[in-house]
Design a protein around this nucleic acid. Structure first.
Lengths: 229, 229
DNA sequence: ATAAAGGGATAACGTTGTGTTAACCTTAAA
DNA sequence: TTTAAGGTTAACACAACGTTATCCCTTTAT
């Protein structure tokens, strides 16, 4: 299962629980965000637009049930997965939880392993749609380059590149570590017939280095450039 | 919620439990089939092709876990909902249940009401998925696009778009984040043979942006446009 | 038939930011 | 030290896109 990029928001007022769950979900490959009360949960949900929200019920400043109700009225969160994680294990609370629109209701205390099983089961059921397979997404270290969406991400921060910059970066990153001669770069990015000045490539390389904020492009003097971390 | 026509198969070796669950599910509008051991469960599953199977684990002539494993290997039952309903409430059994491909794991004893909540929650989740695939309603963030009703909603406010505007928006929103080249847009919305001026697309994009009152369409200079929040 | 209304395309002009170059500076190897 | 290769910066030209007004055409109501 591909858990990459799946975002999970956890809301609980007990820091210990937050930490334990966060650790285990991250270990599985999920990206985890946290909130310590109801209002913060709502706010962060709008910020990060998570794929799954795990809600404690008894929280300060809006209960989990209230948060769930509010989210479900908004189109943006109509389909977001929601799990209640709570010590309230009486029947009526559970039924109310599901009535509010939750996808699962888990009683505390619960082992991280078991929670993971349930989270994975939910994603397994829902997540059949995306990931068309061999799209041209390049992932090198903490750098993700998606030619379909035309975005570059460094440490989950989106970086905006111009067309030529993007094409140049994509070429270099398509074979990490391999050195591309200046002529190769010219042919691939600019085309065989186009003639540009000597400094043109350098300027683009500089802009990429600057925008990415990383030293991921190495100069091989007298030869060319290579993408490497 | 539309429960009509949804078929549920229950497998348990205790007649009392079968009867109670059957009664409650039928009262909710589901069509219920029963089996009293593992082999019969497999046989009836192939007969009626249920939407959901509720499996006891400790049954004669194949355990629920075995039944689930066997079903999951068959393409016809790859996406069938499966709930384990069992007295085995230790952690490893639950994890094993989910690993086998179950969608939920419920401990006995359970109130019929609560089981109903879980069953409904599962159908609610899956039903949306099919809805999204079949009748073409797109939901991206707080934007809902219904090509049947020809309606676009932003934050529950209805927005009226013209035909070309709607087609253009629908195309972009059908793959959120993906960049559509100007040529792709022309081919998809206007047709391969139609020739229109350079500024035509821009004008329509502008109108959409204006009417939606959102910056949901991003320009990628030299490449195209993408729908993104 | 005629008027009104609105969709759709286009031209003309304004705006932005990319791509490129030139000029000058820095570094590393012989 | 010398020198070739690349780094840096600012400035410019132009292509690409945004914006607006206008025209033509189809639809709809009177």
């Amino acid at each position: 299962m591909d858990t990459k990029g799946k975002k999970i928001l956890i809301a609980d007022d007990e820091p210990d629980i937050l930490e334990i769950i966060q650790y285990n979900l991250q270990a599985e490959g999920y990206t985890v965000y946290t909130a310590k009360d109801g209002d913060e949960a709502l706010q962060r949900a709008k910020q990060v637009n998570p794929d799954l929200i795990i809600l404690d019920i008894m929280m300060p400043r809006k209960t989990g049930t209230e948060v769930c109700s509010i989210l479900r009225t908004q189109p943006a969160f109509k389909d977001t997965l929601i799990i209640f994680l709570t010590a309230l294990n009486d029947e009526s609370s559970q039924v109310r939880g599901f009535d509010t629109g939750a996808d699962d209701y888990v009683n505390k205390p619960i082992s991280p392993k078991l929670l993971l099983s349930r989270v994975n089961a939910l994603f397994r059921r829902v997540g059949k749609k995306e990931e068309g397979g061999s799209n041209g997404i390049l992932t090198v270290g903490n750098v993700v380059i998606d030619p379909v969406k035309f975005i570059v991400e460094v440490d989950d921060n989106e970086v905006s590149l111009a067309k030529k910059e993007f094409e140049l970066l994509y070429l270099l990153a398509s074979r990490p570590g391999r050195v591309f001669l200046r002529n190769e770069i010219l042919n691939q990015v600019w085309g065989n017939d186009v003639i540009v000045g000597d400094r043109t490539i350098d300027v683009h390389i500089r802009k990429i280095r600057q925008k990415l904020g990383l030293d991921c492009i190495t100069t091989v003097k007298g030869v060319g450039y290579k993408f490497d971390l």
